[in-house]
Measured scan of single mutants.
Amino acid sequence: MQVTWGNVTVTFSNPEEAKKYAEKVARKLGGQVELHNGQFRIK
């Protein structure tokens, strides 16, 4: 499962870890987490 924002992509084998990481990054950037085609995207 991947977490992407800007031109950065981070890949996780565990979807739960990916979700936690995406939420943490979104909080830092003041963005929203979207699940899109099996990727968490931060907008």
Results as ranks from 00 to 15, higher is better:
residue 20 K to D: 11
residue 17 E to S: 11
residue 43 K to T: 15
residue 27 R to S: 09
residue 4 T to V: 15
residue 1 M to Y: 15
residue 8 V to R: 06
residue 37 N to H: 05
residue 30 G to W: 05
residue 21 Y to N: 01
residue 21 Y to V: 04
residue 2 Q to H: 08
residue 9 T to M: 06
residue 11 T to K: 11
residue 14 N to I: 06
residue 38 G to W: 02
residue 11 T to R: 09
residue 2 Q to D: 11
residue 3 V to N: 00
residue 33 V to A: 05
residue 12 F to Q: 00
residue 3 V to M: 02
residue 26 A to R: 03
residue 27 R to A: 13
residue 12 F to R: 01
residue 1 M to E: 03
residue 25 V to H: 02
residue 31 G to K: 04
residue 27 R to Q: 11
residue 43 K to M: 13
residue 4 T to E: 06
residue 40 F to C: 04
residue 35 L to V: 13
residue 13 S to R: 11
residue 1 M to A: 10
residue 11 T to N: 13
residue 25 V to Y: 03
residue 38 G to P: 02
residue 15 P to Q: 12
residue 2 Q to N: 11
residue 18 A to S: 02
residue 37 N to V: 03
residue 21 Y to W: 11
residue 9 T to R: 04
residue 30 G to R: 07
residue 29 L to S: 06
residue 22 A to Q: 00
residue 34 E to H: 06
residue 37 N to I: 03
residue 10 V to S: 03
residue 7 N to G: 10
residue 16 E to L: 12
residue 15 P to G: 09
residue 26 A to T: 02
residue 8 V to L: 08
residue 42 I to V: 11
residue 21 Y to K: 02
residue 36 H to N: 08
residue 10 V to N: 03
residue 17 E to R: 07
residue 14 N to W: 04
residue 23 E to C: 15
residue 7 N to D: 12
residue 18 A to R: 00
residue 27 R to C: 15
residue 36 H to V: 15
residue 1 M to Q: 06
residue 34 E to P: 00
residue 3 V to L: 04
residue 7 N to C: 15
residue 20 K to H: 10
residue 24 K to F: 14
residue 32 Q to D: 07
residue 36 H to F: 12
residue 5 W to L: 09
residue 12 F to L: 06
residue 27 R to H: 10
residue 38 G to H: 15
residue 19 K to M: 11
residue 6 G to I: 03
residue 27 R to P: 01
residue 13 S to D: 13
residue 17 E to H: 10
residue 16 E to M: 11
residue 23 E to N: 08
residue 11 T to D: 06
residue 40 F to P: 03
residue 39 Q to R: 08
residue 24 K to P: 00
residue 17 E to Q: 12
residue 22 A to M: 04
residue 43 K to D: 06
residue 19 K to H: 08
residue 2 Q to Y: 07
residue 19 K to F: 13
residue 37 N to R: 04
residue 4 T to Q: 11
residue 35 L to F: 14
residue 32 Q to F: 14
residue 9 T to K: 05
residue 43 K to S: 12
residue 36 H to T: 10
residue 33 V to F: 05
residue 34 E to C: 15
residue 32 Q to I: 15
residue 13 S to F: 09
residue 33 V to W: 07
residue 15 P to T: 12
residue 39 Q to C: 10
residue 13 S to E: 12
residue 24 K to M: 14
residue 34 E to I: 13
residue 39 Q to N: 12
residue 10 V to Q: 05
residue 33 V to T: 02
residue 30 G to E: 04
residue 5 W to N: 03
residue 30 G to C: 14
residue 2 Q to G: 07
residue 43 K to P: 05
residue 10 V to M: 09
residue 22 A to I: 04
residue 1 M to K: 08
residue 38 G to V: 01
residue 2 Q to K: 14
residue 33 V to Q: 01
residue 11 T to Y: 14
residue 12 F to G: 00
residue 28 K to T: 10
residue 32 Q to R: 12
residue 11 T to M: 11
residue 28 K to L: 15
residue 43 K to R: 13
residue 21 Y to H: 03
residue 24 K to T: 10
residue 2 Q to M: 11
residue 43 K to Q: 10
residue 28 K to V: 14
residue 38 G to D: 06
residue 23 E to G: 05
residue 27 R to W: 06
residue 23 E to K: 06
residue 4 T to P: 01
residue 15 P to K: 10
residue 42 I to A: 01
residue 39 Q to A: 12
residue 6 G to E: 07
residue 20 K to S: 10
residue 30 G to M: 06
residue 18 A to N: 00
residue 1 M to D: 04
residue 23 E to F: 12
residue 23 E to D: 10
residue 28 K to Y: 14
residue 27 R to E: 11
residue 11 T to E: 09
residue 36 H to G: 05
residue 22 A to E: 00
residue 39 Q to D: 07
residue 35 L to K: 08
residue 29 L to R: 03
residue 8 V to H: 12
residue 26 A to W: 02
residue 39 Q to M: 09
residue 40 F to D: 02
residue 17 E to D: 13
residue 11 T to G: 07
residue 10 V to T: 04
residue 31 G to T: 06
residue 34 E to F: 09
residue 11 T to H: 12
residue 3 V to W: 01
residue 16 E to W: 09
residue 18 A to G: 02
residue 38 G to Q: 04
residue 42 I to H: 01
residue 2 Q to E: 12
residue 1 M to S: 10
residue 26 A to H: 01
residue 37 N to P: 03
residue 1 M to H: 14
residue 13 S to L: 09
residue 40 F to S: 02
residue 26 A to F: 01
residue 9 T to H: 05
residue 11 T to C: 15
residue 18 A to L: 03
residue 17 E to L: 12
residue 8 V to D: 03
residue 1 M to C: 15
residue 34 E to W: 06
residue 42 I to N: 01
residue 19 K to A: 09
residue 7 N to I: 06
residue 13 S to G: 09
residue 21 Y to S: 01
residue 33 V to S: 02
residue 6 G to H: 10
residue 20 K to L: 12
residue 13 S to N: 12
residue 34 E to Q: 08
residue 16 E to G: 08
residue 32 Q to M: 12
residue 29 L to A: 05
residue 37 N to E: 11
residue 17 E to M: 12
residue 41 R to M: 13
residue 41 R to Y: 15
residue 24 K to C: 15
residue 9 T to G: 01
residue 33 V to M: 06
residue 21 Y to L: 06
residue 17 E to C: 15
residue 29 L to N: 04
residue 26 A to Y: 01
residue 32 Q to C: 15
residue 31 G to N: 03
residue 15 P to S: 12
residue 23 E to A: 08
residue 42 I to R: 00
residue 19 K to P: 00
residue 40 F to N: 03
residue 43 K to H: 11
residue 1 M to T: 15
residue 2 Q to L: 10
residue 36 H to E: 12
residue 29 L to V: 13
residue 14 N to P: 01
residue 26 A to I: 03
residue 12 F to P: 00
residue 10 V to Y: 09
residue 21 Y to G: 00
residue 9 T to C: 14
residue 37 N to D: 12
residue 4 T to W: 07
residue 41 R to Q: 13
residue 8 V to N: 09
residue 21 Y to P: 00
residue 32 Q to N: 08
residue 9 T to N: 04
residue 30 G to L: 05
residue 12 F to T: 00
residue 12 F to N: 00
residue 22 A to G: 02
residue 19 K to R: 14
residue 5 W to D: 03
residue 24 K to S: 13
residue 19 K to S: 07
residue 10 V to W: 11
residue 15 P to A: 13
residue 6 G to S: 06
residue 23 E to Q: 09
residue 32 Q to W: 14
residue 12 F to W: 02
residue 8 V to T: 11
residue 30 G to P: 03
residue 32 Q to A: 11
residue 25 V to Q: 05
residue 38 G to K: 05
residue 37 N to S: 05
residue 10 V to A: 06
residue 31 G to Q: 06
residue 22 A to N: 00
residue 21 Y to D: 00
residue 8 V to F: 11
residue 25 V to R: 02
residue 20 K to I: 13
residue 10 V to E: 04
residue 33 V to K: 01
